[in-house]
Amino acid sequence: MFYDPRISMGMLLTLIGTILTAFGLATRSNADVYAKSMGIDANLWWGLVLLVFGIAALVLGRRGQIKLEKKK
């Protein structure tokens, strides 16, 4: 293995999660944006879910990477 892929997965999900959460917070009171999702602030909630998964993957990935470098 060249590097632990959970690091890049975690980074990608954390980044996207942050963007969605921020965008969701900023557009919270804008009913037009969320007419499609039946009034649910889907950006905020899904952004938070992705943040949780992203950070978990990052933590696991860091551990894996340290192990990998020790082996080398």
Partner: peptide, 11 residues
């Protein structure tokens, strides 16, 4: 297109 608001649509 039907369900995702701007933001999630990009995803």
């Amino acid at each position: 297109l039907q369900f995702l608001p701007a933001g999630l649509l990009g995803l």
